[in-house]
Write a protein that binds this DNA or RNA. Structure first.
Lengths: 190, 190
DNA sequence: AGTATAGGTAAATTATAATATACCAATTTG
DNA sequence: CAAATTGGTATATTATAATTTACCTATACT
C-alpha cells in the first residue's frame, strides 16, 4: 500500500525533504537562493531536505508558496506506471446486480479510480462519504441522472459532474441500456 | 480560484483548524479524547482548531495518523457541485487538429480533469510535466497506445493507465476512428 | 439539586524550531 | 590558478511550539 497515512512519523520528514529537493532542483534554484526568496534560513532548508527536521506549518507554507506548488505536493509520495484493463476481472465492490463497481487504481494518492456499471432503468443510493471527499463522475457510455443536494442533474455521454461526497446522493439510469461510468474519488484537497 | 497555493500564510492555520474540527466531530471524538489517543495535548488541539496555531509537522502527522486520514486532507479546501457537459463548447487547449483537449474541472484541488480527442492514426507527443505530477488516462471510446518510460501500452475501450507525468510520453491512436479520452492530472501526492 | 463532560482560558515551564554567523570541502567558472 | 558558488557542519541565541496544571462556563445526565 503506497498510501500516505501508512507512513511512520519519522518518514513524514523524509517525504517532505525528498519532495522539496526535487521541486527545488527542478526549478533550478540553489538552497541559498530559495532561502532568500522565501524568507526561510538556509540551515532550515538544509535540515528539511535532509529529512532531519520537524518544520512548522508556516515554514511548510512558505516553501510551497515560494515554489508555487500546493502544500500537499510537498507531503506526497508517488510511483511508476500501472494499468487497469477492462478485460481483467477485477474484484467487484458492490455487486447487488444493479450497480457494479470495479476499483481501478485503488487508494493511491488518496485519489481513487473506479469503473462503474448501472443497469438499465435502475437506481442506486450511495451512502454519504466522509467530509472532505469529492466525487467526479464521467459518463463513458449511456446516460445518468445524479441526484445530490436536492437537485437533479441529467448527464449524457461524455458529460462529467463534480460534487461533495459527504452529501447523500443517488444515481439513476433512465435509459433502456447499460450506463458505463468513470468515478474519481478524492479525499483531499485544498 | 479555489486553489491551495492561493492561500495567505495565516490562512493555512485556519484551514487545518476547520478541517480538523470537521473530521474530529465526524468521528464523534471530543478534543480531550483525541488528544489522549494521539498523544498531543488538549490545548494544542484547541489552538489548532481555533486557527491560532502554527503546528509542527510531527503534530500534523499525529493528527492525520490518529484520524486515519491523509495529511493532505487536513490542508485542503473544497466546495459545491459543478458540471462539464460535452455539448457546451469549452475552450480548447491544444487544437493542432490532431489532439484536442477540453478542460473539465480546471485546477481544482490540484486534480485537473480533461476530455481529449485524438484523431484516427495520429500521434501526439506531450511535454513532460513537473515532478510530482501523475497522469491517469481512460479510453472512453476507441483505442490508444501510450508510450512512456521506454515501454508501449496498448489500451482498449474502458481501459485506464496511470503514470508519472514527468516522464516524456506519447499518445498514439492506431485505429481508423476517433479516440475519446478522459484525463486526470494530479499535482500531488504521497 | 449535584455530577460529569465538554470546550475553552490563563499562567508558567520545557522542548525545540528557526535564526545568525562563521567555517569547511567540493565543484564550477573566469 | 584564483574566485565564486554550492551544499553542508558547528555553535550559540532567540523565538515559539508544546506541555502541564489549574480554573472557568456551559450543557447534559441521574
Amino acid at each position: 500500500m503506497n498510501t500516505e497515512h501508512s507512513l511512520k512519523e519519522e518518514e513524514a520528514g523524509k517525504v517532505i525533504g525528498a519532495n522539496l529537493r526535487q521541486f527545488r532542483i527542478n526549478k533550478g534554484l540553489s538552497i541559498e537562493a530559495l532561502a532568500k526568496q522565501i524568507g526561510v534560513s538556509k540551515l532550515t532548508l538544509i535540515k528539511i531536505e535532509g529529512g532531519e527536521a520537524n518544520p512548522t506549518l508556516s515554514v511548510i507554507w512558505k516553501i510551497a508558496n515560494g515554489l508555487n506548488i500546493p502544500i500537499t505536493a510537498l507531503l506526497s509520495i508517488e510511483s511508476d506506471v500501472s494499468i487497469a484493463r477492462k478485460k481483467e476481472g477485477l474484484q467487484l465492490i458492490s455487486s447487488d446486480d444493479v450497480f457494479i463497481v470495479e476499483p481501478l487504481f485503488r487508494s493511491h494518492d488518496f485519489t481513487e479510480f473506479y469503473r462503474g456499471y448501472l443497469k438499465a432503468e435502475k437506481a442506486y443510493v450511495s451512502d454519504p462519504h466522509q467530509p472532505g471527499v469529492i466525487e467526479y463522475i464521467t459518463v463513458m457510455s449511456g446516460e445518468l441522472i445524479v441526484e445530490v443536494g436536492g437537485e437533479s442533474y441529467h448527464l449524457e455521454e461524455y458529460d462529467s459532474i463534480r460534487f461533495k461526497g459527504n452529501l447523500p446522493h443517488k444515481y439513476v439510469n433512465p435509459s433502456s441500456s447499460l450506463t458505463i461510468l468513470h468515478f474519481v474519488i478524492t479525499y483531499n484537497y485544498r
